[in-house]
Each structure stands twice: as C-alpha cells, then as structure tokens.
Computed example of a mutant assay.
Amino acid sequence: MHAAVEARGHALVTGASAGIGAALARELARRGHPLILTARRADRLEALREELSKQVDCRVLVADLEDPEAPTQLLDAVAEQGIEVGLLVNNAGYGVPGTYGSVDWETHARFLQIMITAVCELSWRFLPQLQRNAGGVINVASLAGHVPGSAGHTLYAAAKSFMIKFSQSLALENAEHGMRVCALCPGFTYSEFHDVTGTRDQVSKMPDYMWMQAEDVVREGLDAWERGEIVWVPGKVNRVIKTLTALMPDRMALKLVAKRSKDFRKL
C-alpha cells in the first residue's frame, strides 16, 4: 500500500459522490487516508462509504454547498464526531451552459457560492486544523484556468483561475506550518461533468488523446501534492497546451479559443 503523507486527521472530500471526487476518495483510501465524504447525494455517498470502509475509517456528511450555512455545518459536524481534518479537497463543481446574459442571476449566484465562496470559507474554517495537522489543501481547478476564457460557461474559467491564484497564496502563507497546497488542473476527463452541462455530444468529438481517465488524473494530482507542487496540470498533452498558450501573444490565444469554443462549450 502507498504510504500516506502527513496523514494526521481525516481527508475531507467535497463533491465525492461521482467523477473526480469519487476517484480521489478511492485513491486516498488506497494510500491510507481516513475519509470524510460530502456531497448532496446520500445514496451514492453511502455506497462509496461501504466500499471504502473496508480500507480506512470513512464517514459521510450529506451537504449542499449551495447553502451558505453548509461550511459551518460541516465544521460543526466534524467536531461532533471528535475528529479533525488534515487534508481538505475542494472538488465540488460544475459548469453553467450558455452565455452570461442568457442565464438568470440566481443561477450565476449559486455557481459562485459553490465554486468560490464555499471553497474559500471551507479553507478558512478548517485552516486551524490543517495547520495543527501539518496537512494541506487540494483545490480541483482546471486547465481552463490557464487558457483564455471562452464564449459560453462564462464564469467557469474565471472561477478556476481564481482557485489557482488562491492556492498559490495559501501555499506560500502556510508553508511554515508544514502544509502543502496544490491546485490540480485537469483537462478533459471522463466523468459525468459533460452530461450535467449538456455538452456530451460536443466533447465526444474531441480526439482521444485529449482525454484522461479520472483515476489517472487523481493519481498524478495526489503525487504532485505529496511532493509539494503548488500547481499541477496532469497529462503531457495538457501541459503542452498550457505552455503553448502561455507563450502565445494574448491576441493569438484568444483568437484560437474563439475558433474552438463551440467544440467544448454550449452557447
């Protein structure tokens, strides 16, 4: 079994019921990390808890991060169980199809609550525990946070870019506590994400070499966090895309994204 790094405290994984979140939970369990799994879907969480409890202590806390009270409720629920968090994995997320003006503000507000506010509040509320346990944070960002924003899903790349910068600052501030903070930035990953956003038919036309399995993404991501990487883009193809985009003049990069947006974003 892979030896857990600084495994004091439980690993709290948000959005753990499917996709990258479930894959993260499985890989963390394989590495010996006790778990707290949270998401909205109790049935899926319970099935995963039953599976992973054979390997590590695994708790389930049903929560909807759309609720502004959820971070405080999670903090209280963890305290009631007499345990502490040593690794916070901010994974919960999704995309909102359409252009900015075509979507009602309430939908945008819910998105911002889950993707930015909850990430920041959970990190702040659990920070004393993370510092005590010399643990860390993994923020599941995206390759989209490194490339120019696209037409459609207007706030998605912006939120992921925020997560990257937030991770960098948090890492520098907390290095003295022995904490590791990593922004994990996947590209196209096989999961339910594109079904939820209604872009499955579009992205299915992308070439196979653009895609990664969730298991490979999380294995790379956890390895990167363990060795102290602050930002990690899994997959050689994705790292090439990040590098080439950074080297391009902004005007050229934006023109390229404008041409290809319809291939992976729903307007």
Rank of each mutant, 00 (worst) to 15 (best):
H2M: 12
A3V: 03
V5A: 02
V5S: 02
A7C: 05
A7S: 12
G9D: 03
A16T: 10
A18G: 00
G19Q: 05
G19C: 07
I20F: 02
G21K: 02
A23N: 06
L24I: 13
R26C: 06
A29E: 08
R31D: 02
G32T: 11
G32N: 08
H33W: 07
L35S: 10
R41I: 04
A42W: 01
R49N: 04
K54N: 09
Q55Y: 14
D57F: 12
A63C: 09
Q73N: 13
D76Y: 03
A79D: 08
A79N: 12
E80G: 08
Q81M: 07
I83Y: 01
A92K: 11
G93V: 07
Y94V: 10
Y94K: 07
P97N: 10
G98Y: 05
G98D: 02
S102G: 05
V103M: 01
V103L: 02
D104A: 11
D104V: 06
H108Q: 00
L112K: 01
L112C: 05
Q113P: 03
I114G: 02
I114Q: 06
M115T: 04
V119G: 01
C120A: 13
L122W: 04
S123Q: 03
W124K: 12
W124N: 09
R125P: 07
Q129H: 12
Q131R: 14
N133I: 01
N133E: 01
G135S: 08
G136I: 09
V137R: 00
N139T: 07
V140I: 15
A141Q: 08
A144R: 01
G145P: 12
G145A: 13
P148V: 05
Y156G: 13
Y156F: 15
A158N: 06
K160A: 14
I164W: 08
F166R: 03
S169T: 09
S169N: 10
L170W: 02
L172V: 06
E173A: 14
N174G: 09
A175H: 06
H177C: 02
R180P: 01
C182T: 15
F188Y: 12
F188T: 02
T189D: 02
T189E: 05
S191E: 01
E192L: 02
H194Y: 14
D195Q: 15
V196E: 10
T197A: 14
T197L: 14
T197Y: 00
G198N: 11
Q202K: 15
V203R: 03
S204F: 06
D208Y: 05
Y209H: 11
W211T: 04
M212I: 13
Q213F: 09
Q213G: 12
E215F: 04
V217C: 10
V218D: 00
G221A: 07
A224S: 04
W225D: 00
I230P: 04
I230L: 13
W232V: 08
V233M: 10
G235E: 08
V237Y: 11
V240I: 14
I241R: 10
T243Y: 09
T243H: 08
A246S: 13
L247F: 11
M248L: 15
P249N: 09
D250K: 14
V257C: 04
V257I: 15
R260S: 15
K262N: 12
D263N: 13
